[in-house]
Design a protein around this nucleic acid. Structure first.
Lengths: 128, 128
DNA sequence: ATTATAATATGCCATTTGGCAAATGTCAAG
DNA sequence: CTTGACATTTGCCAAATGGCATATTATAAT
């Protein structure tokens, strides 16, 4: 039942790697010391709500998502997704992608989208 | 902005009186020592998420309601999933771009970034 | 190889949390 | 007033949190 905190560290590390960020970068973005973050990841410390809240966004978590993973909120508590993920339609942007693209100037961002739509068109033609 | 925790104690006490419960009864129902509860109410201690969670139900609060009052969750966080697109936009991400890319599955998003970095490398080589 | 540099881990320590036991306050019944 | 039963507050302390400075690794770059 209390699978909550068991490997919160692993989950956080996984996500940090996946984003990806280094401990120091995450520290910078979250205003939590990298040493503390490191200890949290390897289970030597357990993050408080304050800390959890600070690292949620940089990691691309919803606040209550992370809180639930940490066992601070009971699993079904936060209204959110009402069964049958029928409405996954509005996706969201991968934090890593957002970060990478965000560093490019606007023209480049636009160009990337332009290229993407060209590629999609090509793919559509090939499918037939 | 952070008037959230300032009177958390008062809010908790108000609610406890309103229910009504004594500190000891609340202590019994929540498994939190009455001394600690007392200190929390008069602002000498700040409750951790664990404590907050324990006292939520006996007081008739929703967990996330209390968490929000305590400043552990941001006010609008747990309502719905609408999101106007600009969720954790790292600062300079063009909203249009975010919207377009956000509709692609994660693999595609990643692939796009991959292609971008390839192009950047090529450009770097050509510049030299 | 040898540095240089970034990333992660550790030692140490101030601060906070939260429980237990004892003190204090409150109030009705005798 | 005094006793007795609760309720609240305080003293003290162990355990945990989280930051800073300092090691210890990894990872490149020459």
């Amino acid at each position: 039942m209390d699978y909550s905190n068991s490997d919160l560290g692993k989950i956080i590390k996984q996500q940090r790697i996946k984003v990806p960020l280094t401990l120091q970068e995450l520290a910078a973005e979250s205003s939590v010391s990298s040493s503390h973050l490191g200890r949290i990841e390897r289970g030597e410390r357990f993050p408080s709500a304050r800390i959890l809240r600070r690292i949620a966004k940089p990691l691309g978590f919803d606040e209550d998502e992370l809180f639930t993973l940490a066992g601070f909120l009971s699993p079904q508590a936060h209204g959110g997704v009402e069964e049958t993920g029928a409405r996954y339609t509005s996706r969201q942007l991968d934090p890593y992608v957002a970060r990478m693209l965000g560093e490019e100037p606007p023209e480049v961002q636009r160009a990337v989208i332009g290229i993407l739509s060209i590629l999609k068109n090509m793919a559509k033609g090939m499918a037939k």
